[in-house]
Every structure is written in structure tokens, then in C-alpha cells.
Design a protein around this nucleic acid. Structure first.
Lengths: 107, 107
DNA sequence: GACTTTCGTTAGTCTATACTTACGCTTTGA
DNA sequence: TCAAAGCGTAAGTATAGACTAACGAAAGTC
């Protein structure tokens, strides 16, 4: 089970979001990702480790290269987190409205 | 328009997530939120400013108290961000599969 | 087997930021 | 009008973590 907390921590950094965003359109190596960015390749590599630990990215070896790709599991985890969060918020609103109505109906 | 980037930055901090999570069930003041947490009231107050700037929280005055409440706008912004992200990922997969098929069909 | 490429890892630095303490503002009630 | 309650803010510190430079490992090439 992927942890939504971990995914949110991972996506809290702008550079990491940029790396992640680049992976939505194509499969990339760390070196390719680093090109056109203002940080070094090791930095990108470290960000990829965090994204991988969060379940947002998967990697497969291809010779000396390592191909990174966006993973739906982390994305789904965060989406479920938000869904559950908002459902609970609405339910609390509903209960609050209900007890307010009961309060009003009482003499 | 609420910025999803800002909301993700805001939710990148665990303490801020705890504050935000407490607001899903009830309307709270900064002092109430700070009780039962291991950080001071000013710290909570500062986190609430960040959440408010990100559109995740709204506040209204009530005498000397200020009541904080979860806001759907920021949540929706992040959900749209993820939806768009994943849609684009799937579209890229589709296109990649298509051109691979074309490549194969060619002599 | 030597060389190259591509990459992850480690050590160390430095900055962003989370936190506390102290202070001042606003509203309320006596 | 004075005191108290409830906050936000400013200043200062300390730490998490983002980054670079240097190094080592694995796979391909000649």
C-alpha cells in the first residue's frame, strides 16, 4: 500500500514536481531529465529516489541506462486521500446542519 | 484561480497536514488547534496563513476569535492537477502505442 | 582487458523554513 | 476606561533537506 503522506511530502518540492511533470509525457533517464534543468544530474537522481520511494515513479534497467516512468499508484493514493478528506468534511457539514435543525425545532 | 502548485507546497509539511486534517471535522480557532499538538500556537497560526494563501482554508472573525474552516477550492485545484496529469500520461501512452503499431506495420 | 558511458552514492555545504519567544493589536465585559 | 482573552506578527535560531563535487559500480564497445 502506497502512503499518501509520503507522496505529498515528495510533491512538496518544486524541483521534484518539475521532474515528475516531465515524466508524464515520456519515459526518461536521469541524464535526459537533468538537461534543460538548472540542477545537476545527481540532484535529479536524488529526487527520483524520493519519487520512487513515494510510489510516484517506477524504474527499469536498460543496459547502462535506467528508464524512469510515472506510476499511477502514488497518484491514486493522493487522489484517494483527497477524496476521503473531502467526503469526511461534507459529512461533518451534514451532521452539523442536522443538529442545528434539531436544536431549532426544540422549544 | 487557486494555484495547485501552492496547495501542494502547503501540504508538503507534515505539521501543516495535521492542522489541515483537524479542520476537516470541525471549525476551529488557532488556539484550539494548538492544544493537543506539540507545537506552539504561533506556529499553528503561521501554518494557517500558508494554508489560507493556498486556498485550502478560510477564516472568519467572531469577536476576538478567528474561526478557521477547510475550503474546497484548494482541494479541487489539486484534484484537477492530478486529473490533468494522469489524463496526459495516459494520452502519451496511447500515442506511443499507436506509433509503435505503425512502425511495426511498415515493411 | 582497457576505455567509455550512464548512473547511483557519499560527504559536505548552504539555504529555506519551521519553530519559539516577545510584543502589540482588537474585541469584549465589568 | 481598564483588564483580560484571543490572535497575528516580528525577530532570531536551529535544523531539515536541496544541492554540488568527487568517487565507485555496472554494462556496453573496441
Amino acid at each position: 500500500m502506497i502512503n499518501a503522506e509520503r507522496a505529498l511530502d515528495a510533491l512538496g518540492d518544486p524541483t521534484r514536481r518539475r521532474v515528475f511533470a516531465k515524466l508524464r509525457n515520456r519515459v526518461c533517464t536521469a541524464g535526459e531529465l537533468a538537461q534543460g534543468m538548472d540542477v545537476s544530474r545527481p540532484a535529479v537522481s536524488q529526487h527520483l529516489q524520493v519519487l520512487r520511494a513515494a510510489g510516484l515513479v517506477v524504474v527499469r534497467a536498460d543496459g547502462t541506462r535506467r528508464l524512469y516512468q510515472a506510476d499511477s499508484r502514488g497518484i491514486d493514493a493522493v487522489r484517494r486521500w483527497f477524496d476521503g478528506f473531502w467526503d469526511e468534511t461534507l459529512e461533518s457539514f451534514r451532521q452539523a446542519a442536522e443538529s442545528a435543525a434539531n436544536e431549532k425545532g426544540r422549544p
